[in-house]
């Protein structure tokens, strides 16, 4: 399988803090790659670095065989990366409809087809189409954020902890939808919920203290009790 995204020894500063100190990973086309690691390990910063929201100061980010680490955020998004941030980034005063309109880069048939598809996946969004995003429940906000990232023909989705703060039944729903989208899109998923991570993920990277320290297939990780205990705090 071909490599869609590659991070080569990324280093990122936020202000004076040296947050990422060597993150390297490969994302293969068609797979779900899960980033795991303790709180504060640098998972969110890794996604933000890919989007150039916290640009890398060293190393390279290669997407579809082109270096993108020096491009502005909007260009990276236009090249085909959709981003679902940890806080969902919903425009609170805009309705669900308006949130989607801001996201839709093109007004063509394909985009509308994708819109229909994602609304069928998340019927709640259709139901609250005219409701301000700020008034949605946590789960609905998550769905809206995912829908916004999906609606453009993105080859890659970066999704940051979609299960955070959601009730188990909602987590299930979000998980199902990601499994569906996986059919068409490559996904990088940050996920602390090991059940979810291991169900959806094909392979994993563990980030610790701003470095990628281990990686492999999800199957390997499931069997490696030592690793799970050491980095993920799961016995």
């Amino acid at each position: 399988m071909s490599v869609l995204l590659k991070l080569n020894n990324i280093e990122t500063f936020i202000g004076q803090y040296h947050i990422l100190q060597g993150v390297s990973l490969e994302v293969k086309k068609g797979e779900v790659t899960v980033l795991l690691g303790r709180n504060g390990a640098g998972k969110t910063t890794t996604l933000r670095t890919i989007m150039a929201l916290n640009p890398a100061s060293k190393g390279s980010v290669v997407f579809r065989d082109q270096e993108i680490q020096n491009l502005p955020t909007y260009t990276i998004a236009q090249r085909g990366i959709g981003y679902v941030p940890e806080d969902q980034g919903i425009f609170a005063g805009l309705t669900v409809e308006e949130n989607m309109k801001v996201a839709m880069q093109k007004d063509n048939e394909e985009t509308h087809k994708r819109l229909d598809y994602i609304l069928n996946l998340f019927p709640d969004l259709k139901k609250f189409w005219k409701k301000p995003g700020g008034l949605l429940s946590g789960g609905q906000k998550q769905m809206l954020s995912i829908a916004r990232a999906y609606v453009n023909e993105n080859e890659l989705l970066l999704i940051d902890e979609p299960s955070k703060g959601l009730a188990p039944i909602v987590v299930e729903k979000v998980m199902e939808s990601i499994l569906q989208m996986k059919e068409q899109t490559t996904i990088v998923l940050v996920e602390q919920n090991f059940m979810m991570a291991s169900t959806i993920g094909d392979c994993f990277y563990i980030i610790d203290d701003g470095r990628t320290v281990s990686n492999g297939t999800m199957k390997q990780l499931k069997e490696d009790e030592e690793m799970k205990r050491k980095y993920l705090g799961i016995a």
Binding site: T73, G89, F91, E98
Partner: peptide
């Protein structure tokens, strides 16, 4: 209008507007 929506969205969350592919 689309640009009007983008302006309102930008007032609320500039970063996200750019992450959605818009040159703010």
């Amino acid at each position: 209008t689309k640009i009007g929506l983008v302006v309102r969205a930008g007032v609320m969350n500039k970063e996200m507007v750019q992450a959605l592919g818009i040159n703010i």
